[in-house]
């Protein structure tokens, strides 16, 4: 019985479609912002600073008279970019590490997992601070800091799931049939871990967006003049009592994006996880 080939009605997965639609909107806005925004998101006009919404500036202007809508749009591109690269980095290193540790066992298992613990023990924010002190702040540092933090996350999830799968009957059967550990890992373990990984990647992607925002908010991420939601929030902080709109816009952008990704992930999980599918049938 294969879950993937089963046709499923859209009504069964409302979160999937909501999530996909929301994510698509954000991605679309991010793509559009690369070629067009209503105004130049970096253009300042001091006489127009802190204006409310108008026909010219739909979401008003910030402290330097920049167009908030254009900044929010351009911020979408930056946020997505940083988060995707970071999570991809984390998965590319973490999944093989966890798989390897689980399949090998023994000293190598111990060493690999201790190493991942060690990396993990450096909280992302501290890593980001260290990277900034060593190489200066920037988007790349944010990606690396978030990415490093994700390596042990994926390693541990893969490891935990692979361990319990390793003793399952169908794996034992393959092993008795003479299949190599590598083949078992790729043919049996990985596909079965995949749904878990997708759910985890969803959480991590949303966390990545949140982490990027936090880093930029602390001045450790994307640097001006490139707009970023986190920095817009930092900027808005002193203006909270004057123009709460400036804190609301980037905040809601983050919430919308993260919510969309999470709904998408949830829907995907329901669709992809064979065990859950089986129960629905």
């Amino acid at each position: 019985m294969s879950a993937l080939t089963r046709p499923s009605s859209s009504a069964a997965h409302p979160s999937l479609w909501f999530g996909a639609a929301m994510t698509a909107i954000v991605v679309l806005i991010a793509l559009v912002s690369l070629v067009w925004t209503p105004q130049d998101p970096t253009a300042m006009e001091m006489t127009q600073r802190l204006q409310g919404p108008s026909a010219l500036h739909w979401l008003g202007t910030d402290r330097f008279g920049r167009d908030v809508l254009s900044m929010a749009m351009a911020g979408a591109a930056i946020s997505l970019q940083v988060s995707f690269v970071a999570i991809a980095f984390g998965m590319a290193l973490g999944v093989p590490l966890g798989l390897f540790a689980a399949m090998r066992g023994g000293v190598l298992d111990e060493a690999a997992m201790r190493m991942s613990d060690l990396i993990f023990a450096f909280p992302a924010l501290l890593t980001a601070i260290m990277l900034r002190e060593l190489f200066g702040p920037g988007a790349l540092n944010a990606m690396i800091a978030i990415g490093i933090f994700n390596v042990p996350v994926f390693a541990r999830v893969t490891y935990g799931a692979a361990l319990s799968l390793r003793t399952r009957d169908f794996v034992t059967a393959s092993r008795l049939a003479g299949k190599s550990e590598t083949l078992i890992a790729l043919d049996h373990i990985l596909p079965n871990v995949l749904p878990l990984l997708i759910v985890q990647a969803t959480i991590q992607l949303s966390l990545g967006i949140l982490a990027e925002a936090a880093l930029s908010y602390m001045g450790l991420g994307v640097q001006p003049p490139a707009p970023s939601w986190g920095r817009m929030l930092n900027d808005a902080q002193t203006l909270m009592a004057v123009a709460p709109r400036l804190a609301l816009v980037p905040g809601l952008c983050i919430v919308f994006t993260v919510l969309g990704l999470n709904l998408l992930g949830d829907g995907l999980r329901d669709k992809l996880d064979p065990r859950l599918r089986r129960r629905q049938a």
């Binding site: 970096t42 253009a43 300042m44 330097f64 900034r132 002190e133 003049p225 002193t238």
Partner: peptide, 30 residues
């Protein structure tokens, strides 16, 4: 704040006279 904010504005102004100013935020130690 005064330095970071002035920097953003000045970089935008210098751009208009053809000077490309890259902003490099640092901590006091650096």
């Amino acid at each position: 704040d005064y330095a970071r904010r002035s920097g953003e504005i000045i970089a935008a102004q210098l751009k208009k006279i053809g000077v490309e100013a890259e902003l490099v935020p640092v901590e006091w130690a650096q």
